[in-house]
Write a protein that binds this DNA or RNA. Structure first.
Lengths: 258, 258
DNA sequence: ATAATAAATGACGTAACGTCAGTTTCAAGC
DNA sequence: GCTTGAAACTGACGTTACGTCATTTATTAT
């Protein structure tokens, strides 16, 4: 029989918490002094450990109470339910993480103008909900639509998307200060082409089609692409052409058999 | 200028929420009728969209209020902080998921006796905190200690652990009803050896040493291994010997150069 | 003008405690 | 036995972002 403060020290649970558990009937101490001070037995401590254990799995106190009292508690079902719940929460957090990364990259893309990035992304996410997808289906064949799902996007379903965005961000950054032929810009182009070869091997025709659509602001918007200013796109195209002409009968179109 | 109910319909935000936002000063409607009914302007709606946008990234209303009002708000820092927070939450949930999976497997291992599994796991997690690690270091060389970190454990740092646990669970299940030479059991042994060859190629000596320790309950406990009844271990050993003798000058010890 | 509908305010509830404030009990020394 | 400082007790309010009543007032259609 030990006092509440001793329990707190041993278990690293606060006195307040112990009193609260007593109050809601989750862990009533097995006896009290005549003056009303709580006294905890070894069994109480063991029960407390169990409570901690279940708490570490994200259960709420009410549920823990049921588990501990109901002899017919279905453990497997209960655990699987909790597991499902935890996984849903994880999915929610993942979406939040993606939104945050998207905005961060958006701000980078807009050269620090958050208002711009926020507005564009809000507009995009609203369109996402409304878009009837007909435009996409009209523009592409079935095989192309399958490729479409693998494209990087600002909603960032895949980490790869973020790499693409970072590359675009670099282009926009250099756009303000460097000529398209500068080594920095050419380096980005090279990395873009490498990524393209990795992720879309042997799909040059599809990529060319995409590029044409990308250059049309209205088509881009209808397709739900993140809006990029036309002058940036032109800058990118020039840099690309310079890269191609420099590598000429090049040694880079080989990657993609994996 | 539209009424509150219209806003609710358009934005899928409840009337209660709009009134609450007004109350805490997050979104005060720009005008009211003489009778006191709220009227929202297009600007109000835009602000509301922004609020929704930030909420989707897990920000709290107070923080959103600061973002919207403070012109010196540091966006990049704020976003990175939130990202960190979200990632910590994800880590917490991952631990919960692992605990749940561990208990589920523990219950499987204990043939449905949850009390047993819970007790064992609580004991294990308590030992985990207290164990001074000296025993491990005494028993193994430096290279072996590196291998140790790759071992499967019931805390399940890697998904691989769960596979091992499932296999052990099968062994314990069959232990009650089948002889070690049965096809089911031999199948599990084969999968265990395959996994071993994948994860610990060319480390037979280390595995043998581990097996010896595993067979001693006290050594297992000191090393923080999930307790398995001695008779199950003997059963497993017999099944292993039968498997080895059947595959004789076998065709399975080759896997592991990857 | 009246009735039906919609909007307003206010209050309580949620989960799991933290943090006072004010009062009572315990344990030890004299 | 008495005093005293430490510890324990019991409320009560605060936290987050609303949901859910209950009651009253405004608007709108007929």
């Amino acid at each position: 029989m030990i006092h509440i403060n001793e329990v707190a020290k041993q278990t690293h649970i606060t006195v307040r918490t112990l009193r609260y558990y007593d109050q809601i009937g989750l862990l009533e101490c097995s006896s009290k002094t005549e003056g009303g001070h709580r006294l905890y037995s070894d069994e109480d401590l063991q029960k407390l450990q169990q409570i901690q254990f279940y708490k570490s799995m994200g259960y709420r106190l009410q549920e823990i109470q049921e588990m501990l009292t109901d002899p017919n508690w279905n453990w497997t079902t209960g655990l699987v339910n909790q597991l499902t719940y935890i996984q849903e929460e994880q999915a929610r957090l993942k979406e939040m993480e993606l939104s945050l990364r998207t905005l961060l990259n958006g701000i980078a893309v807009e050269a620090g103008n958050q208002e711009q990035a926020v507005q564009k992304l809000i507009k995009l996410s609203m369109q996402d909900k409304k878009r009837p997808m007909h435009f996409r289906e009209k523009m592409f064949s079935d095989t192309e639509l399958k490729l479409w799902t693998k494209l990087p996007n600002m909603n960032g379903e895949h980490p790869e998307s973020m790499e693409w965005i970072a590359l675009i961000g670099l282009i926009i950054k250099y756009h303000a200060s460097e000529v398209p032929s500068s080594p920095n810009v050419q380096n980005v182009i090279r990395r873009m082409l490498e990524k393209q070869a990795e992720e879309f091997p042997l799909e040059d025709e599809f990529i060319d089609k995409l590029w044409e659509l990308r250059k049309s602001p209205s088509a881009s918007e209808q397709l739900g692409m993140y809006p990029i200013e036309p002058e940036v796109l032109e800058y990118l195209e020039r840099a690309y052409e310079i890269y191609i002409s420099n590598t000429a009968e090049g040694d880079f179109r080989q990657g993609g058999e994996a």
